[in-house]
Protein backbone atom coordinates (compact mmCIF):
# COMPACT_ATOMS: atom_id res chain seq x y z
CA UNK A 1 0.00 0.00 0.00
CA UNK A 2 1.28 3.44 -0.86
CA UNK A 3 1.75 6.06 1.84
CA UNK A 4 -0.82 8.83 1.54
CA UNK A 5 0.17 12.41 0.67
CA UNK A 6 -1.30 15.00 3.01
CA UNK A 7 -1.15 18.73 3.48
CA UNK A 8 1.21 19.93 6.22
CA UNK A 9 -1.76 20.68 8.50
CA UNK A 10 -3.30 17.25 7.93
CA UNK A 11 0.07 15.59 8.51
CA UNK A 12 0.50 17.16 11.96
CA UNK A 13 -3.14 16.37 12.80
CA UNK A 14 -1.92 12.74 12.77
CA UNK A 15 0.27 13.48 15.82
CA UNK A 16 -1.85 13.10 18.97
CA UNK A 17 -1.04 14.71 22.33
CA UNK A 18 0.89 12.64 24.85
CA UNK A 19 2.86 10.44 22.47
CA UNK A 20 6.56 9.65 22.21
CA UNK A 21 7.79 11.66 19.23
CA UNK A 22 11.25 10.92 17.82
CA UNK A 23 13.09 13.70 15.98
CA UNK A 24 16.53 13.78 14.33
CA UNK A 25 19.59 16.00 15.00
CA UNK A 26 20.29 19.25 13.18
CA UNK A 27 22.75 17.62 10.74
CA UNK A 28 20.13 15.15 9.52
CA UNK A 29 16.70 16.34 8.34
CA UNK A 30 14.62 18.30 10.83
CA UNK A 31 10.95 18.85 9.96
CA UNK A 32 10.79 22.48 11.08
CA UNK A 33 7.80 23.53 8.95
CA UNK A 34 5.88 20.59 10.45
CA UNK A 35 7.07 21.53 13.94
CA UNK A 36 5.66 25.04 13.53
CA UNK A 37 2.39 23.54 12.27
CA UNK A 38 2.36 21.18 15.26
CA UNK A 39 2.75 24.10 17.67
CA UNK A 40 -0.06 25.96 15.83
CA UNK A 41 -2.29 22.95 16.36
CA UNK A 42 -1.52 23.23 20.10
CA UNK A 43 0.13 19.84 20.72
CA UNK A 44 0.61 18.97 24.42
CA UNK A 45 2.41 16.51 26.71
CA UNK A 46 4.87 15.16 24.20
CA UNK A 47 7.60 12.74 25.23
CA UNK A 48 10.16 14.21 22.88
CA UNK A 49 13.01 11.87 21.95
CA UNK A 50 15.99 13.59 20.33
CA UNK A 51 17.95 11.15 18.17
CA UNK A 52 20.32 11.85 19.80
CA UNK A 53 20.48 15.67 20.11
CA UNK A 54 18.30 18.61 19.15
CA UNK A 55 18.46 22.36 18.69
CA UNK A 56 15.82 24.92 17.75
CA UNK A 57 13.19 22.21 17.22
CA UNK A 58 13.31 21.10 20.87
CA UNK A 59 13.61 24.76 21.87
CA UNK A 60 10.35 25.75 20.17
CA UNK A 61 8.42 22.73 21.47
CA UNK A 62 9.72 23.19 25.03
CA UNK A 63 9.15 26.94 25.01
CA UNK A 64 5.62 26.48 23.64
CA UNK A 65 4.81 24.18 26.56
CA UNK A 66 4.33 21.12 24.33
CA UNK A 67 6.83 18.83 26.08
CA UNK A 68 6.30 16.96 29.35
CA UNK A 69 9.33 14.65 29.00
CA UNK A 70 12.50 15.22 27.02
CA UNK A 71 15.01 12.47 26.36
CA UNK A 72 18.25 13.68 24.77
CA UNK A 73 22.03 13.43 24.84
CA UNK A 74 22.19 17.22 24.46
CA UNK A 75 20.20 20.28 23.47
CA UNK A 76 22.31 23.04 21.99
CA UNK A 77 22.27 25.87 19.48
CA UNK A 78 25.74 24.81 18.36
CA UNK A 79 28.13 27.66 17.69
CA UNK A 80 25.42 30.13 18.74
CA UNK A 81 25.75 28.84 22.29
CA UNK A 82 23.32 27.47 24.85
CA UNK A 83 19.70 26.71 23.97
CA UNK A 84 17.93 29.47 25.95
CA UNK A 85 14.46 27.99 26.60
CA UNK A 86 15.83 24.53 27.36
CA UNK A 87 18.33 26.02 29.78
CA UNK A 88 15.76 28.23 31.52
CA UNK A 89 12.90 25.74 31.70
CA UNK A 90 14.83 22.62 32.70
CA UNK A 91 15.70 24.36 35.97
CA UNK A 92 12.07 25.22 36.66
CA UNK A 93 11.06 21.57 36.31
CA UNK A 94 8.55 22.48 33.58
CA UNK A 95 9.35 19.15 31.94
CA UNK A 96 11.07 15.94 33.03
CA UNK A 97 14.50 15.42 31.51
CA UNK A 98 15.99 12.02 30.84
CA UNK A 99 19.67 12.78 30.32
CA UNK A 100 21.17 10.24 27.95
CA UNK A 101 24.22 9.72 25.77
CA UNK A 102 24.19 9.55 21.94
CA UNK A 103 24.98 5.83 21.46
CA UNK A 104 22.40 4.81 24.10
CA UNK A 105 19.63 6.41 22.07
CA UNK A 106 20.88 4.86 18.83
CA UNK A 107 21.22 1.42 20.49
CA UNK A 108 17.80 1.49 22.17
CA UNK A 109 16.21 2.31 18.81
CA UNK A 110 18.12 -0.58 17.26
CA UNK A 111 16.56 -2.88 19.86
CA UNK A 112 13.10 -1.73 18.76
CA UNK A 113 14.15 -2.14 15.13
CA UNK A 114 14.91 -5.80 15.85
CA UNK A 115 11.82 -6.34 18.00
CA UNK A 116 14.09 -7.00 21.00
CA UNK A 117 13.28 -5.99 24.60
CA UNK A 118 16.68 -4.43 25.28
CA UNK A 119 20.16 -3.76 23.93
CA UNK A 120 23.46 -4.05 25.82
CA UNK A 121 25.88 -1.14 25.58
CA UNK A 122 29.49 -0.55 26.64
CA UNK A 123 30.56 2.50 28.61
CA UNK A 124 28.30 4.36 31.05
CA UNK A 125 29.25 2.44 34.22
CA UNK A 126 30.36 4.90 36.89
CA UNK A 127 28.63 7.87 35.23
CA UNK A 128 25.87 9.91 36.86
CA UNK A 129 23.88 9.50 33.65
CA UNK A 130 23.47 5.84 34.56
CA UNK A 131 22.94 6.69 38.25
CA UNK A 132 19.93 8.86 37.34
CA UNK A 133 18.37 6.38 34.90
CA UNK A 134 16.37 3.88 36.99
CA UNK A 135 15.00 2.46 33.73
CA UNK A 136 18.50 1.21 32.78
CA UNK A 137 20.14 -1.89 34.30
CA UNK A 138 23.61 -3.29 34.78
CA UNK A 139 23.87 -7.05 34.20
CA UNK A 140 26.64 -9.59 33.90
CA UNK A 141 27.71 -10.51 30.39
CA UNK A 142 26.37 -14.10 30.31
CA UNK A 143 29.23 -15.09 27.98
CA UNK A 144 31.95 -13.37 29.99
CA UNK A 145 33.62 -13.59 33.36
CA UNK A 146 32.96 -10.73 35.77
CA UNK A 147 32.08 -8.37 32.91
CA UNK A 148 29.23 -5.99 33.80
CA UNK A 149 27.41 -4.34 30.90
CA UNK A 150 24.56 -1.81 30.74
CA UNK A 151 21.17 -2.94 29.37
CA UNK A 152 18.91 -0.35 27.77
CA UNK A 153 15.21 -1.03 27.27
CA UNK A 154 14.10 -0.71 23.65
CA UNK A 155 12.88 2.74 22.64
CA UNK A 156 9.81 2.40 20.48
CA UNK A 157 8.59 5.87 19.53
CA UNK A 158 4.91 6.24 18.68
CA UNK A 159 5.83 8.50 15.79
CA UNK A 160 9.07 9.48 14.07
CA UNK A 161 8.92 12.88 12.34
CA UNK A 162 11.58 14.15 9.95
CA UNK A 163 12.29 16.00 6.72
CA UNK A 164 13.91 14.43 3.65
CA UNK A 165 14.94 15.58 0.17
CA UNK A 166 12.66 13.32 -1.89
CA UNK A 167 9.64 11.02 -1.88
CA UNK A 168 8.30 9.22 -4.92
CA UNK A 169 4.59 8.92 -5.75
CA UNK A 170 4.32 5.65 -3.82
CA UNK A 171 5.68 7.29 -0.67
CA UNK A 172 9.16 5.77 -0.74
CA UNK A 173 11.43 8.34 0.92
CA UNK A 174 15.03 9.04 -0.09
CA UNK A 175 17.37 9.92 2.80
CA UNK A 176 20.77 9.28 1.21
CA UNK A 177 23.46 8.67 3.81
CA UNK A 178 21.37 9.98 6.71
CA UNK A 179 20.68 6.50 7.93
CA UNK A 180 19.66 7.44 11.49
CA UNK A 181 16.39 8.32 9.76
CA UNK A 182 16.15 4.72 8.52
CA UNK A 183 16.64 3.41 12.07
CA UNK A 184 14.02 5.84 13.37
CA UNK A 185 11.52 4.72 10.72
CA UNK A 186 12.18 1.05 11.47
CA UNK A 187 11.87 1.55 15.23
CA UNK A 188 8.81 3.82 15.38
CA UNK A 189 5.24 2.58 15.18
CA UNK A 190 4.57 5.22 12.55
CA UNK A 191 6.67 7.61 10.54
CA UNK A 192 5.54 10.97 9.19
CA UNK A 193 7.77 12.73 6.70
CA UNK A 194 7.93 16.09 5.00
CA UNK A 195 9.93 16.31 1.77
CA UNK A 196 11.51 19.02 -0.35
CA UNK A 197 10.00 17.64 -3.53
CA UNK A 198 8.15 14.76 -5.15
CA UNK A 199 10.24 12.50 -7.38
CA UNK A 200 8.31 11.30 -10.42
CA UNK A 201 10.22 8.03 -10.91
CA UNK A 202 10.18 4.97 -8.64
CA UNK A 203 13.06 5.44 -6.18
CA UNK A 204 13.34 1.69 -5.64
CA UNK A 205 13.76 1.02 -9.37
CA UNK A 206 17.05 2.95 -9.44
CA UNK A 207 19.84 0.92 -7.80
CA UNK A 208 21.80 4.08 -6.98
CA UNK A 209 18.86 5.55 -5.04
CA UNK A 210 17.35 2.37 -3.56
CA UNK A 211 19.96 1.79 -0.82
CA UNK A 212 19.33 5.30 0.51
CA UNK A 213 15.55 4.93 0.37
CA UNK A 214 13.08 4.09 3.15
CA UNK A 215 10.41 1.84 1.60
CA UNK A 216 6.83 3.09 1.98
CA UNK A 217 6.12 0.06 4.19
CA UNK A 218 7.51 2.14 7.07
CA UNK A 219 5.98 5.47 6.06
CA UNK A 220 2.62 6.55 7.50
CA UNK A 221 2.17 9.73 5.48
CA UNK A 222 4.12 12.32 3.51
CA UNK A 223 3.64 16.07 3.06
CA UNK A 224 5.44 18.24 0.55
CA UNK A 225 7.20 21.14 2.30
CA UNK A 226 9.77 23.02 0.22
CA UNK A 227 12.52 24.40 2.49
CA UNK A 228 10.81 22.41 5.22
CA UNK A 229 13.95 22.27 7.39
CA UNK A 230 14.36 26.06 7.52
CA UNK A 231 15.93 27.73 9.50
CA UNK A 232 18.02 24.57 9.84
CA UNK A 233 19.82 23.43 6.68
CA UNK A 234 19.38 20.29 4.63
CA UNK A 235 22.54 18.54 3.44
CA UNK A 236 23.10 18.96 -0.28
CA UNK A 237 20.17 21.41 -0.59
CA UNK A 238 20.60 24.53 1.52
CA UNK A 239 22.62 25.88 4.40
CA UNK A 240 21.29 26.76 7.82
CA UNK A 241 19.99 30.34 8.08
CA UNK A 242 22.55 31.54 10.61
CA UNK A 243 21.11 35.03 10.77
CA UNK A 244 17.65 33.75 11.66
CA UNK A 245 19.01 31.30 14.23
CA UNK A 246 20.97 34.12 15.86
CA UNK A 247 17.80 36.23 15.88
CA UNK A 248 16.04 33.35 17.64
CA UNK A 249 18.75 32.96 20.28
CA UNK A 250 18.63 36.69 21.04
CA UNK A 251 14.84 36.72 21.26
CA UNK A 252 14.52 33.58 23.39
CA UNK A 253 16.77 34.86 26.18
CA UNK A 254 13.59 36.04 27.89
CA UNK A 255 10.14 34.48 28.14
CA UNK A 256 8.63 37.63 26.61
CA UNK A 257 11.09 37.59 23.74
CA UNK A 258 10.30 33.96 23.07
CA UNK A 259 6.54 34.71 23.05
CA UNK A 260 7.13 37.47 20.52
CA UNK A 261 9.22 35.13 18.35
CA UNK A 262 6.47 32.51 18.54
CA UNK A 263 3.79 35.04 17.60
CA UNK A 264 5.80 36.37 14.70
CA UNK A 265 7.42 33.25 13.22
CA UNK A 266 5.43 30.22 14.37
CA UNK A 267 1.81 31.04 15.20
CA UNK A 268 1.39 32.95 11.95
CA UNK A 269 2.11 30.74 9.00
CA UNK A 270 4.53 32.31 6.57
CA UNK A 271 6.66 31.14 3.74
CA UNK A 272 10.23 30.24 4.53
CA UNK A 273 12.67 33.04 3.76
Amino acid sequence: MDAPFLSLEDLVAEIPDGIMLAVPPDYSGVAMAATRALIRRGVKNLHLLAVPTSGIQAELLIGAGAVSTLEAAAVTMGELGPAPRFTALVKSGAFALKDSTCPAIHAALQAAEKGLPFMPLRGLIGSDILAFRPDWRVAENPFGDNDPVVLLPALRPDIALFHAPLADRAGNVWIGRRRELMVMAHAARRTLVTVEEIHDDDLLADERMASGTIPSLYIGAVAEAPRGAWPIGLEGRYEADGEHLALYVRAARTEDGFRRYLAEHVLVERRAA
Binding site: A72, T76, A83, V90, D99, S100, T101, F132
Partner: peptide, 16 residues
Protein backbone atom coordinates in the same frame (compact mmCIF):
# COMPACT_ATOMS: atom_id res chain seq x y z
CA UNK B 1 21.17 17.35 39.79
CA UNK B 2 18.51 17.52 38.40
CA UNK B 3 17.58 21.04 39.64
CA UNK B 4 20.90 22.50 38.64
CA UNK B 5 21.99 26.09 39.21
CA UNK B 6 23.55 26.17 35.74
CA UNK B 7 22.53 23.82 32.96
CA UNK B 8 24.82 22.97 30.02
CA UNK B 9 23.77 21.22 26.79
CA UNK B 10 24.34 17.64 27.93
CA UNK B 11 26.75 14.73 27.79
CA UNK B 12 26.65 13.98 24.02
CA UNK B 13 28.61 10.74 23.41
CA UNK B 14 31.11 11.27 26.23
CA UNK B 15 29.74 8.55 28.55
CA UNK B 16 30.66 6.03 25.88
Amino acid sequence: YPKLDVRWPGSFGSAY
